[in-house]
């Protein structure tokens, strides 16, 4: 474990806490894409299959349980909670995310570390995570104004993978045989997708103005 990876995991956890806070405090999920939340639940379920087979560390196990539980809780909340589900922007959240699932799964069948179910699902979860934010970014562009908590949620979600890139560089330099091309390349693509959001987020922060994404 290195400081970059710990910072990445804590930033990721923070993004989930901010999202839970927004939904719980405002009893509303307006501006949040249910499709992105479903994709994240799928990412964690596909990636953490080894939760019960490979024990890495207490920290690793606890974080996996927290990520799976929180992502499922958010999907449950947005689908079934009587009060929250009314504020879901159903007509704005129209990204065809099934294409993302199909495309990344086919890619995982072709590009993986080993042609075993667990490795294919792991690669699938890595590729899917890279594109999972797209429905959310599209929703933000459509809904015009972005409330602070939602903006912070997306910002932390993008920042966490940027910390992971620093972690991979650090591990590549310090560990003799560290290579994790699938996660590295996918992580760079993922962080790149946030680039324009980061740009507008920084502009709004500098001008102390409301975050607006161009339609």
């Amino acid at each position: 474990m290195n400081i970059f990876r710990l910072a990445g995991d804590m930033t990721h956890l923070l993004s989930i806490i901010v999202l839970l806070l927004k939904i719980y405090a405002t009893k509303s999920c307006s501006g949040i894409s249910l499709k992105t939340q479903e994709l994240y639940a799928l990412v964690f379920l596909a990636r953490y299959l080894d939760l019960f087979t490979d024990f890495i560390s207490v920290y690793n196990t606890i974080m996996k349980v927290v990520f799976i539980a929180s992502s499922l809780a958010i999907v449950w909340c947005m689908r079934l909670h009587p009060l929250v589900k009314r504020s879901y922007d159903k007509e704005l959240d129209t990204f065809r995310h099934y294409f993302l699932i199909g495309g990344t799964f086919v890619l995982a069948l072709v590009l993986n570390e080993k042609f075993t179910l667990q490795e294919i699902l792991w690669a699938f979860s890595i590729y899917l995570e890279a594109v999972a934010i797209l429905p959310q970014l599209v929703l933000l562009q459509r809904s015009g104004n972005v409330d602070n908590l939602t903006g912070q949620y997306v910002f932390f979600l993008g920042a966490y993978r940027a910390f992971y890139i620093l972690n991979w560089i650090y591990r590549y330099l310090t560990e003799p045989r560290f290579t994790r091309w699938i996660a590295c390349v996918s992580g760079i693509v993922q962080t790149g997708i946030y680039a324009d959001f980061f740009y507008y987020y920084f502009i709004s922060w500098k001008n102390n103005s409301k975050l607006k994404l161009p339609a």
Binding site: D54, I56, N60
Partner: peptide, 10 residues
């Protein structure tokens, strides 16, 4: 060899 790298990252 060929043992898939243990996934120690989240």
């Amino acid at each position: 060899e060929g043992q898939s790298v243990v996934k120690d990252e989240l």
